[in-house]
Design a protein around this nucleic acid. Structure first.
Lengths: 330, 330
DNA sequence: GTGAAAGCGCTAACAT
DNA sequence: ATGTTAGCGCTTTCAC
C-alpha cells in the first residue's frame, strides 16, 4: 500500500541503503544522487515507517504522561509544559487521563510501556506502583509529579510544599482575626489532600476542631451538605480553606446561595482563571503547574541522557496571592 | 535487555509461536502449556513489543489529534472527549498543540503519520492542507473539527454554527435595546472568527459600523487599546460581543478598570468556567466541546470500520445562556 | 495442539 | 560514494 524505502530505491535506481542515507541526512551521498532520491520520495509520497525504525533502533523517542484528567485546568497546563520540553528534545508526548482510577492508571502505564516509551511522567492515582519495577529495571526512567509513588519505589519526584502551603493559608486567615476556620479537602487517600490537612491542622494548633473538617470528592451536593452542616453549628466557621481549585469553585457556588455564606472569608489552594475577577477576588495559595511539568520533563531527559545519580526530590514553593476573600474580617 | 517472546519460549520450553498464541489469547493451546507460558511471562516480566507487532500487522491502533493548545479550556475538553471515545475503541490517542502555527501543525501531522496513526482528528491552524493528500490516499482518514480544511480536501467535518451563534448573540443585545454593539474577534484569518464576524454583521444590518469592530490575537494590551479607542468615540458602544472565550475573559479584565466599562452589556462566544459566578453573570453563546470531540471521534471510527460514504459535514447547534451581562440596558 | 520459516520496513555493520 | 547482509520482535502461513 504505502511506498517503502525499497520502492523509493528502485524508483530512483539506487540501493535501499542510499535512500536510508538521504532520509536520515547521513553524509556520504553524491548531491546528484541525493536529488534523484528526494525527487522519487516526493513523487511517491514516501514517509518513513517509524515502527520499523523503532524496532531496529530500540528507541521510540516518545515520553508517556499520565495525569488525572487532560481537561483539568491544573493538569492540562502541567501537560502542556511537559509537551513543550518533550518537543524541544525531538520527542513525541503520549498522554492519557487516569481519572483518579488506579486500574486505569496501571492500564495506561502498561500501554505506554508496551509502546516502549523512553520514559514516564506520572501523576499517580494509585497507592501501589510495584508494577513499575520491571519497567524501571529495564531502563525506563519515571518521574512522579504532584504526588509521590507508593512505597518501595525510589524515583525522581517533583512535588509542591503542600503542608507549608496549607499552613500559609491557615495563618493568613488567623492573621485576619479568624478563629473558626473550616477545611474542605479532597479524599484523604489523595496525597496532596492529606498533606494539606496536616498543614492546616499544624497551623491551627489547639484551635483545631474536627467538626470543621470535611474531606471528600468535590461534588456540588457533597460540598453543599458539608457547608450546611458546619454553618448550622452553634459556633459556625467564619472562614474557609479549600483544598484544591475544583473544591474552591464548588464551594464558591454553594456559598453564594446563602446570605451567611457570602461574608465567609475564603482561601483556596491552587490559583485559577478569573479568581481575580470575582467579587471579592479569591485569595489563593498558588502553585506553578508550568514549572512543575517543565521541571519533571527536564529531570526525565537528564535521566535519558544518562544521569544515573540518586533519585532527586524537588519541592516547589507556593505563595499566597491576596485578592480580597482571604482578608475579610470574621 | 528486555525479554522477548523468544526468551519466554525457551524459559517455558515451548516454541515462540505458542507464546504468541497465549499472549494474544488465540485458541488451540493446551491449558497446561498456557499456564506454563503465563508463569514464564510473569517471572521474566515480559511485555509484548508493540512496535514489532505494528510492523507486522500494519495497524497501530492509535489516533492522532492536533489542537491549538492542550491547555486551552475549550480544546482540552474537546480532547478529553476524543480520548474517551478512542479508549473505548481500544486505541491510544496521540495529541499535540499546534499553537495556531501552520508549520507546527504540519510537523505534528507528519509525525503522527510517520507513526502510522490509523486516523487523524484536526483542529486546523493553516489554510492549506494539500500535504494531507498522500495520507488520505494511503487510507488514513481525517476528520476536521471546529474549522474546515483548506480548499480541495473533501473530508468529514464537525463544526458549530458560528454565523448563527453570532446572529443570536447580536440579536440578543439588540432585543435588549442596544444599537451600538461592538465586536471583538480573533484574527480574521481564523475561520471561526470570520464566520462570527459575518453573523454579527448580518444581524446588525445597517446598524453596522466598522469602527466598532476589532479583530486580533487576544492579548490584554491589544484588547485594552481596542476598547479604549471605541469608548472614546462620540457615539461609543453600549454593548460588546466577544468572539471567543479567551477574548471574553480578556475583555472583562480590561473593562473592569474603567467605570464606563462596568455598565457595558456583554455577550461572549463560548461558555467558560465561573461565567455564572461573576457579577453580573456573563451571558454567552455556548457550544459543546464534548459533543464536538465525541462526534468527531465517532465519525473517525466509523471510517476506520470501513464506511466509505461521501464526506459528512456535521453542524452543531449553539445556544444562548442568559446570565445578566447580556441583559443590561444601554 | 504445536512448531518452523518467512518477512513486515528499517538501520547497523561490513563490504566494495 | 554506494551496495550487501543480517536481524530488530513480532505475526502469518503452512507443516507436522
Amino acid at each position: 500500500m504505502r511506498p517503502t524505502m525499497k520502492d523509493v530505491a528502485s524508483a530512483a535506481g539506487v540501493a535501499l541503503k542510499t535512500v536510508s542515507r538521504v532520509v536520515n541526512g547521513e553524509p556520504g551521498v553524491n548531491p546528484g544522487t541525493a536529488e534523484r532520491v528526494r525527487e522519487a520520495i516526493e513523487r511517491l509520497g514516501y514517509s518513513r515507517n517509524e515502527s520499523a525504525r523503532v524496532l531496529r533502533r530500540g528507541r521510540t523517542s516518545t515520553v508517556g504522561l499520565v495525569i488525572e484528567d487532560v481537561a483539568d485546568p491544573f493538569y492540562s497546563v502541567l501537560g502542556r509544559a511537559v509537551e513543550d520540553v518533550t518537543t524541544a528534545h525531538g520527542c513525541l508526548l503520549l498522554s492519557g487521563s487516569s481519572g483518579e482510577d488506579p486500574a486505569r492508571e496501571r492500564e495506561l502505564i502498561r500501554t505506554f510501556c508496551a509502546r516502549r516509551v523512553d520514559g514516564l511522567i506520572v501523576v499517580p492515582a494509585g497507592e501501589d506502583h510495584s508494577f513499575l519495577r520491571p519497567e524501571l529495571d529495564a531502563g525506563t526512567p519515571a518521574v512522579f509529579v504532584d504526588r509521590p509513588p507508593g512505597p518501595g519505589l525510589d524515583v525522581d519526584t517533583v512535588l509542591c510544599d503542600n503542608a507549608a502551603g496549607a499552613r500559609l493559608a491557615t495563618r493568613h486567615l488567623l492573621a485576619h482575626g479568624h478563629r473558626r476556620i473550616a477545611f474542605l479537602g479532597d479524599r484523604p487517600s489523595i496525597f496532596t489532600a492529606s498533606r494539606r490537612l496536616h498543614g492546616y491542622r499544624a497551623a491551627l494548633g489547639r484551635l483545631f476542631d474536627e467538626r470543621l473538617v470535611a474531606m471528600r470528592a468535590p461534588t456540588p451536593e457533597g460540598v453543599r451538605a458539608d457547608l450546611e452542616r458546619m454553618l448550622a453549628l452553634d459556633d459556625p466557621p467564619t472562614a474557609l480553606f479549600t483544598g484544591n481549585g475544583r473544591l474552591t469553585m464548588t464551594a464558591l457556588r454553594a456559598l453564594r446561595t446563602r446570605e451567611d455564606g457570602r461574608r465567609m472569608a475564603l482561601v483556596g489552594f491552587d490559583d485559577f482563571e478569573l479568581a481575580d475577577l470575582l467579587r471579592p477576588g479569591v485569595t489563593v495559595v498558588a502553585q506553578d503547574p508550568t514549572s512543575m511539568g517543565g521541571l519533571a520533563a527536564e529531570l526525565l531527559f537528564r535521566r535519558l541522557a544518562g544521569d544515573g545519580g540518586p533519585a532527586e526530590h524537588l519541592r516547589l514553593p507556593v505563595r499566597v496571592i491576596p485578592r480580597g476573600s482571604g482578608e475579610l474580617p470574621p
